[in-house]
Amino acid sequence: MLSQIVRPLVRTQIRLLANSQATRSTLISTITQWLSYLGVYAVVTQLNASSNKIQVSLTVGKPDSCDSSDWQQILNNLERNSETSCASKLSYEEMTPKQQSKLQRLLAYIIQVGDPENAVNWDILYPQLRSIDLDEYMLAGIKSALKVPQSLDQLIEGIDPDLAAIALPFAVSIAFLDRRVNPHEDRTLTALFNAMK
């Protein structure tokens, strides 16, 4: 997964902070630098150490890759009162059987294209999928869906944004299981991202 790839960088930053004579300014710089890698412009407005934790307040500007209309919609959503803005997104349990099936088939597809030359070894794959918080019901559906070839175009056609939003983080985690993203996986992740718009 991506977290395993960047851990050495994180450890380096931690050692830098531990040995710095200017820990506050170094941490502020580190936070803004790491967010800038994601195209996010952020300013640290407050930083305190309390109860064995570091509390950080940020002011964040529109990310480089964010469409202006999407950014404005985010701001509008945040300005609404808390009752309307706290509506939760669709959860796996709330999905219809058809949506659950599509999610299972999407995740099976990204597994299939991750190594298209080799058959999937479920005994090796199963614990990896469990590690990214896929429940047993979803895993059973994925295992079943792996038995037949899947078509990205058919899976993406008519997919609703909520389902794409649920699928994308799982798909990213699955794509990074082997610490690389091939062109087929990239196409799938891009299609899911675009379906969220």
Score class of each variant (00 low, 15 high):
P8R: 10
L9G: 13
V10H: 05
R11T: 15
T12Y: 11
Q13C: 10
A18M: 04
S20A: 06
S25G: 00
T26G: 00
T26W: 01
L27C: 07
I28Y: 00
S29I: 00
I31Y: 01
Q33P: 00
Q33M: 06
S36A: 05
A42M: 02
V43Y: 01
V43T: 13
V43D: 03
T45P: 07
A49E: 15
S51M: 09
N52K: 14
N52I: 08
K53Q: 15
I54K: 07
L58V: 02
V60R: 12
G61I: 01
D64S: 12
S68G: 11
S68F: 14
S69N: 15
Q72S: 15
I74H: 01
I74F: 04
L75T: 12
L78C: 05
E79Q: 14
T84V: 14
S88V: 09
K89G: 12
E93T: 09
E93L: 07
M95N: 06
T96E: 09
Q99G: 02
S101M: 12
K102R: 15
L103N: 06
R105Y: 02
L106W: 06
L106K: 03
Y109A: 08
D115N: 13
P116D: 13
N121D: 15
W122V: 03
L129E: 13
E136Q: 09
E136A: 10
M138R: 14
G141W: 14
K143C: 05
S144C: 09
A145E: 11
A145G: 07
K147C: 06
P149R: 11
P149V: 01
Q150G: 02
Q154W: 01
Q154E: 13
